[in-house]
Design a protein around this nucleic acid. Sequence first.
DNA 1: CACTTGACTTATT
DNA 2: TAATAAGCCAAGT
Length: 108
Amino acid sequence: MSLSFFEQVYEVVKLIPEGRVTSYGAIAKYLGSGQSARMVGWAMNASHTLPDVPAHRVVNRNGLLSGKMHFSSPTAMQEALEAEGIQVVDDQIQGFKSVFWDPMEELM
DNA sequence: CACTTGACTTATT
DNA sequence: TAATAAGCCAAGT
């Protein structure tokens, strides 16, 4: 029983604590197998198939809301993050380094 | 089965 | 410092 690459990404994203975020590359690296950040981003594109995938907690390595445009509304992602206590200004997470959650460090 | 796409990242110019 | 190129690999067509 091997989960699809998508499902593996979903499992990691679901484990992201509230008020925390991670990057595509971090997830890709955690999944290993030489996965690239693009695979994670692409998997997230299909995350809409599942209801419990907090895609708003996944941003690019700059802490920029690169995927906000894929949400229901361009502001939905920012609002979701702010609702968890994350400050977002100009589509960029404030104190990104502080709220960054690395699956490699936390799930190891 | 070959080509295109993609919510990224790193290196180079 | 900003812009461009290349690397990455699975799923869709």
